[in-house]
Design a protein around this nucleic acid. Structure first.
Ligand SMILES: [Mn+2]
Ligand SMILES: [Mn+2]
Ligand SMILES: [Zn+2]
Ligand SMILES: [Zn+2]
Lengths: 139, 139
DNA sequence: ATTCTAAATGGAAATAATTTCTATTTAGAG
DNA sequence: CTCTAAATAGAAATTATTTCCATTTAGAAT
C-alpha cells in the first residue's frame, strides 16, 4: 500500500486496477503526460480500455491529490505525479524532458492585496532546464 | 491614432476595420473575453463576420502587445486589453466582474535557479475581488 | 488618383480535445 | 457470498479551434 494508494483510499475512491496502473505509469514516466499519452500506455496492459475512463481517472486522481495539473498553455490537459500532497505549492517543468518538480510558494502577505483587489487565488508555474538535462543527461 | 492602433502599425500589421472594432470592443468591455464573446459583439457591427477571422485577429493582437492572454484553466482562450505593453508583467482577474489589471512581477534573482533547474520562463496569474466589486459595485 | 500585392477576410469543412450517455462490470462493505 | 454504489467501455455528441481556399482590401508604390 504505497502513499498514492493510500491517498486514493483516504478519499473514499475505489482502488481499481485502472487506477493502480495509471499511478504506476506516472511513477515510471517521471514526467507530465496527457490523457492520450496515458491511454496509449494503458492500452498495452488492458486490451479494453476507454479514453473517457482515463479522463475520469485523471480527474479523480487530481481530486485526491495524487496528480497535479500541469499547464502547457496549448488548450490540452496535462498531469503529473504530485509528491508534495495537498499543501499549497507550485511546479517547475523541464522544457527538455518534461519532468515536473514541486516548488514552494513564495507569495506571502504581499499577495493578500494587489491593486485594490482582495486576492483569493493565484497560479504559478515555472519552466526551464533540469539539472540532468543541463548536464546533457538526455537529448 | 490611439496607443493600440500605434502598436498595430508598429508591428507591421494593417489597421483594418476589424482590428479597430475589436480593440474598441475590449475598451468598452473592460474585462476579458473569449473569441466567441468578441464575435457575438462584432457580428452586430459587421453582418458578415467569421469566427476564424476573430481568432486570427485576437492572436495577432496578442503578438503586437495590444491584448494579453488570460487563463481560466477551462481549456478555452481568453483575452484582455493589455495596458502595460511588452515589458514583463502579470495579471490579476476579478472573479466577479472579469476585469483584468496589470501587476508587476515579483520574481527576482531567486527565480533564476530552483531545485537545480535553470529557470527560463514563468507564468503567474492572480484572481480575487476588485475594489469596485468589493464595494458592491456590481453584482 | 490608380495600380498593385501581400495581408486580411468569410465561410465551409476539418480537426482535436473532452464530455455525455447508457448498458455492463466490479470493488469492497456488510 | 451478496449487494450496491462506483467504475467502466465504447459510441456518439459536444465544443473549441484550425485549415483551406476563393475573394477582398489596406496601404505602399506609382
Ligand atoms: Mn506537486
Ligand atoms: Mn498586461
Ligand atoms: Zn529535464
Ligand atoms: Zn470586479
Amino acid at each position: 500500500m504505497n502513499q498514492y494508494w493510500e491517498k486514493i483510499k483516504k478519499a473514499g475512491l475505489k482502488l481499481t486496477p485502472r487506477r493502480k496502473a495509471i499511478v504506476d505509469i506516472f511513477i515510471k514516466l517521471n514526467r507530465y503526460a496527457s490523457a492520450e499519452d496515458v491511454w496509449e500506455i494503458l492500452s498495452k496492459k488492458f486490451k479494453r480500455c476507454g479514453l473517457p475512463g482515463v479522463y475520469r481517472n485523471l480527474e479523480s486522481l487530481v481530486d485526491c491529490g495524487v496528480l497535479a495539473k500541469v499547464e502547457k498553455f496549448d488548450n490540452k490537459k496535462y498531469y503529473a505525479l504530485c509528491l508534495a500532497g495537498s499543501s499549497h505549492h507550485h511546479h517547475i517543468v523541464c522544457l527538455n524532458c518534461d519532468k515536473v518538480e514541486d516548488i514552494s510558494c513564495y507569495a506571502g502577505e504581499s499577495l493578500k492585496k494587489i491593486k485594490g483587489f482582495k486576492v483569493l487565488n493565484h497560479f504559478f508555474q515555472a519552466s526551464g532546464i533540469c539539472a540532468a538535462c543541463a548536464r546533457g543527461g538526455k537529448a
